[in-house]
């Protein structure tokens, strides 16, 4: 079964969040987890801490063995950040898109669907 990553992008949650809204969002994610889990579509997934917790690593020189430079913050400073992801096992893109459209992040932000490379097919 082909696998897709559904990458959930949205506005970074602000410090004082509305607990009522959070409760609603959590319930919506729980619902997606239940429906997707029952259908056997969800092959994994995680929610990520905000980008203030992110550290970006780069090895200089374009080759192994260069200096390791760690910097505070996400790779790209953007308004919409990667907040979490699911791995979806679907037979084709249409099925993956229809599941991605049921992830709450699709209405609070955007969900990017990318096919996962199947290493067994790599020659």
């Amino acid at each position: 079964m082909p696998r897709y990553a559904a990458l959930i992008y949205g506005a970074e949650p602000s410090g004082e969040s509305d607990p009522e809204l959070w409760g609603k969002i959590m319930a919506e994610y729980m619902h997606f987890g239940e429906v997707g889990g029952a259908a056997g579509v969800i092959g994994g997934g995680e929610a990520l801490h905000p980008t203030t917790m992110a550290t970006t690593v780069h090895v200089t020189g374009g080759a192994k063995g260069g200096d390791v430079i760690a910097t505070d913050g996400p790779f790209a400073e953007t308004k919409e950040v990667l907040g979490g992801f699911y791995l979806l096992d679907c037979k084709d893109l249409d099925e993956a898109l229809s599941w991605a459209a049921q992830i709450p992040g699709a209405w609070y932000g955007r969900v990017e669907v990318r096919p996962v490379i199947d290493m067994s097919e790599m020659g």
Partner: peptide, 10 residues
């Protein structure tokens, strides 16, 4: 091919 866009009538 890679994203498996299906060959079907919607």
């Amino acid at each position: 091919t890679k994203a498996r866009i299906p060959y079907r009538v919607p």
